[in-house]
Design a binder for these strands. Sequence first.
DNA 1: CCTATGATTTCGGTATGCCTAAATATTTGA
DNA 2: TCAAATATTTAGGCATACCGAAATCATAGG
Lengths: 250, 250
Amino acid sequence: MKTTATSSSIEDYVKVIYAYTEWQDKPITSSVLATRLGVANSSVSEMVRKLKDQGLVDHQPYSPIHLTAEGLSLALAMVRRHRLLETYLVQELGYTWDEVHDEAEQLEHAVSENFIERMSNKLGHPVRDPHGDPIPDAQGRITMAPSHRLDELDPGHTGRISRISDHDPELLRHLESLGIGLDTELTVLGRPRFGAGLQVHVENSTHDAGPQTLGDEVAASLWLASVGSHAECLVQDLTGGSLMSPHTTH
Amino acid sequence: MKTTATSSSIEDYVKVIYAYTEWQDKPITSSVLATRLGVANSSVSEMVRKLKDQGLVDHQPYSPIHLTAEGLSLALAMVRRHRLLETYLVQELGYTWDEVHDEAEQLEHAVSENFIERMSNKLGHPVRDPHGDPIPDAQGRITMAPSHRLDELDPGHTGRISRISDHDPELLRHLESLGIGLDTELTVLGRPRFGAGLQVHVENSTHDAGPQTLGDEVAASLWLASVGSHAECLVQDLTGGSLMSPHTTH
DNA sequence: CCTATGATTTCGGTATGCCTAAATATTTGA
DNA sequence: TCAAATATTTAGGCATACCGAAATCATAGG
C-alpha cells in the first residue's frame, strides 16, 4: 500500500465523492461532482483519471465513480479531520455553528496528524460533531445510533434528534429558535389533514410544550434515533489497519 | 491600496525577507533568500519580479531586496499569525517548543483573520511568543523591552532573558536542562581568561546557583533586557491603519 | 431502430511556481 | 586593471490544476 502524495485538490475530490454516498447509496456522477466542487466537467474528467491512476477510485468511462478501499480510507481521514476541526472550533474557540464550515474546509488540508490527535484528545475523543455527524476514529471506524429521517417516520415514533443536516445555516438558526437541537426528544404526531408540514411534539422544550409543525424541508433535515435503542451501531469499517494519513505536501 | 491576492508562496517570500532584517539590518540578497526558502536562485529572481510588480518589494536588478510599506505590512501580518499560532499550540494543545515551528508554518497560510483574532483573544492578547519573539498586534505594532545579545554585553550586566533564538531545537533542550528560560534572571560575569565561552550567574536557578559557562553559540542565542528597565519600547509602527489581511486564496 | 439531446471526455491553452543550464553582471585579487 | 570567481538573471521546460470548445458516447422518444 504505497501512500502516494495527495494534494489538497485530491483530498477534496475524494471527500466529495464520499459525502455523496454517506446518506444514500447512488454513486456520484462526473457532472454532480463538478457541480459540488465548483469546477468544469472537463476538470473532473482529468482529475478522475488521475485518481484512478493513484488507485483511489474505480471508474469506467461514462460511468459513475466509486471509491476504492484506499480512496475510502483517505476520505474517512478527511471527514475525521473536518468534523474534529468543526467540533474544536465550536467548543474551544467559540465559533457558531454556521461559521465553522469554511474555516474547517481550509484547515483540514493544513493540519498534521499530530494536531488532529491532540485535538481529539483535548475534546475527549468525540464520536460526533456539533451537527451530529459521526466522526470516524483514527482507524476509520464510524459509530452511530441507527437513525431515520424525520419525514420518513410514521406517527407515534418517539426518539431523540441524532443528526441535523448542516447544509443551510439559516435552518440551523431557525431550529435553535424552536428549541430543537441535538438530543432533543421528539414524538412524531403526523401530517396535518391538508397542507404541508409534519406535526411533532417537542419534549424538553424550554418554549411552549405544545405540538409544533415543521416545514417539509426542516423535517427532511432532521434524523431521529429511537429513544429506547442505546445501541451504537458500527456503520463502517476498513479491513486492515489504520487510516491512511493524507500526507499533504508538507 | 488595492490588496492583490497573495498566494502562500508570496507570503513565505515576504516573511523570510522580513525575518532577515528583524535582528540586524543588512538587507537580504537573492541567494540568501533562495537558501532560506529552499528554492533555486532562478526561482527567487522570478518571484522577486512578481513581488515588485505587486508593490511588495523594492528591487533593482543585482541588488539586495527591500520590503515596501505594503510588503512590511503583509510580513508583519504573517509574523503575527506564526507567533500567535506557536503560542497557541504550546499553551492550548501541549506542543513542545521544538514541535511547533513546522505546524505553525503550515497553519499560518490556512487560518482566517477570524481564527487569528479568536486565538489572540483566548490567549489574552500576548505580546510575545514562547521564545520571547514579539507578536505584532493587529495594527502591525511591535512592542518589546530593549535588549542586547548576551555575547555583546560587558561583564557586570544584570537582566532577564527576553528572547531565545529558536533556530536550534537541541539548543532549546540544552537551555532547559541548565534551568535557563524566558525571564530567567542572569548576571554576565565575563569571559574566562583562556578558552571559549561566557561565564554567567543564573539567579533563579532551581539547579546549583553557582556561575555557569555558556558556549559561544548559546550566548549568541540569548537576549537580555536590563532588569531595571520596565520600559516597553515600540519598535515598529505602520503609518496608516490596520494590518493588511493576507487574503489567502480562500 | 435510430436520431436528438444530454452527459462525458478529449483537445488545446492558461496561470503558478518550481527546475536546470546558459548568459550576463559584479566583485575580487593578482 | 582586468580576468577569474561569484552572484544574479534569462531562457526553456515540467507538473498541477484549472478553463472553454469540440468531439464522442449513451439513451430516451418517436
